[in-house]
């Protein structure tokens, strides 16, 4: 099956509070906090569209838009269930 490709990683800077949860738990280390303590995609090319950041953000500030609606399984899946 074709793997999902990241189209856009949307971060709502007005809602992000810079908690760093998305940065810390991203399995591919795609995200970082900028000088204003807002999350941004530093390495979007490494994103595997697992959507863990979107699911965990306490502020509903992240949206992963990928070429396929369903997410690929994250390597950390064993820890999730």
């Amino acid at each position: 099956m074709e793997e999902p490709k990241l189209k856009e990683l949307v971060i709502n800077r007005d809602w992000c509070k810079g908690c760093g949860i998305c940065v810390h738990f991203c399995p591919k280390k795609v995200l970082e906090l900028d000088d204003n303590e807002k999350a941004f995609a530093k390495r979007p090319e490494d994103c595997i569209c697992c959507k863990l950041c979107e699911f965990r953000c306490p502020d509903l500030a992240i949206e992963i838009i990928s070429s396929r609606g369903t997410a690929r399984r994250a390597p950390t899946k064993g820890l999730l269930l």
Partner: peptide, 14 residues
Amino acid sequence: FFPHIWCPGCGHGM
């Protein structure tokens, strides 16, 4: 009503 009132990293948002 967003951004919501919860503190940064508050579990209630999750």
